[in-house]
């Protein structure tokens, strides 16, 4: 079984072909951060028009790399939400058009479900497992029980973790993207010199918050007169430590809640661009070991936005006999766990 996957829900335009024996036949991503991008020209910083400019070529390139004809696919999967609606429409319409032309079924994939099921593509992981998704747009803990069966244990009540990294990097004048820039500066910094808050520490539940931490960094920078290069590194180190501590602290609660519900082998999967942060990885590795979990980290290229995960999520649903009509309407907001409680005082993401 071979599935075509299409992803256009944010900055990345991507197409991939994935087979049911967990082989990625082709995986093409056009990223604005890719210095070696094969196509040049406009990159999709703002979705719709730029996605439209590239998606046909990317799909064709995926088939070329896999050495396959359009008719070789069993179904077509495209991200249909959540995300920036203009971009999502481009990918969804492309997918529907290919499905219509080839006469193959269409599968509308939730972008978050792509992230949630990636560990099954990369590691063949069995259900259930715990997923920590930390990226520029998301920060959430999900219990992954089965295809289409998710329980959100916690989510950010304000900013996503990657967003906090980007904004702190900006305040420190460290450049973009913020994650690698902060990590690099932090390596030369003394995390103990400044003390920053650990958001929501001691509070019940598994939600995250980074807005207050961002503000604390702002105030800290303001207090310093003439921020030296060393000051910047020290602030970066203190911030990175606070984020890692905070994520690990909130995750610990989720691990315990998960362990109380499920016996047997237990895995913590980390996904999203922020999972590339080595201090965070180290913290989560230690936490997982302490709590009797195995830490599973798919390769970064499959942790950030990509189409292989969309093809795989489509494949998982197609195997269960699921597909969608060509009239499926893209959804700007599409929670994986619609039953998740809304928390007063929280602006929970996705």
């Amino acid at each position: 079984m071979i599935i075509l996957g299409i992803e256009t829900s944010c900055d990345e335009t991507a197409a991939a072909l994935v087979r049911d024996d967990r082989v990625i036949l082709a995986d093409v991503v056009l990223s604005q951060l890719d210095e070696h991008r094969p196509y040049g020209g406009v990159v999709p910083e703002i979705a719709a028009r730029a996605h439209l400019d590239h998606i046909d070529r990317l799909v064709a390139e995926a088939f070329r790399r896999a050495g396959l004809e359009l008719q070789a696919v069993d179904a077509v999967a495209a991200t249909c939400g959540p995300g920036l609606i203009g971009g999502v429409i481009v990918g969804a319409m492309t997918g529907k058009a290919i499905a219509a032309v080839t006469g193959k079924p269409f599968i509308a994939v939730n972008h978050l479900e792509g992230h949630a099921l990636t560990a099954r593509l990369t590691h063949g992981l069995e259900f259930p497992y715990l997923l920590l998704l930390v990226s520029g747009g998301h920060c959430q803990l999900l219990e992954v029980r089965g295809v289409g069966d998710y329980a959100r244990l916690g989510s950010t009540i304000d900013d996503a973790a990657g967003e906090a990294f980007d904004k702190v990097a900006k305040m420190l004048g460290l450049g973009y993207p913020g994650g690698p820039a902060v990590q690099k500066a932090a390596e030369r910094g003394d995390a103990a010199r400044f003390s920053l808050p650990r958001p929501l520490k001691g509070k019940p539940g598994c939600d995250f918050s980074f807005s207050g931490l961002k503000n604390a960094v702002r105030l800290l920078i303001q207090e310093q007169e003439n921020l030296s290069a060393q000051d910047r590194c020290d602030v970066a180190a203190a911030f990175q430590l606070a984020v890692a501590d905070s994520i690990a602290g909130r995750s610990a609660k989720a691990l315990r809640a998960f362990a109380a519900r499920h016996g047997g082998a237990r895995s913590l999967v980390v996904a999203g661009g922020v999972a590339a942060n080595s201090l965070l990885r180290q913290r989560l590795g230690r936490l997982a070991a302490e709590e009797g979990f195995t830490l599973v980290a798919p390769p970064l290229a499959l942790c950030t936005d990509n189409a292989a995960m969309i093809a795989w999520a489509g494949l998982e649903r197609f195997r269960l006999g699921q597909s969608d009509g060509l009239d499926f309407a893209p959804r700007p907001r599409w929670p994986l766990d619609p039953a998740a409680p809304r928390l007063p005082g929280a602006g929970v993401k996705a």
């Binding site: 944010c10 747009g137 950010t156 928390l343």
Partner: peptide
């Protein structure tokens, strides 16, 4: 964002989820 969140909630309902749109624009 805090201002916007409270503004949206005043016109929708008190528990409306209002994430920071930095990522989604």
């Amino acid at each position: 964002t805090s201002f916007a969140r409270a503004f949206v909630r005043a016109l929708t309902h008190a528990a409306e989820e209002v994430p920071s749109p930095t990522f989604t624009l």
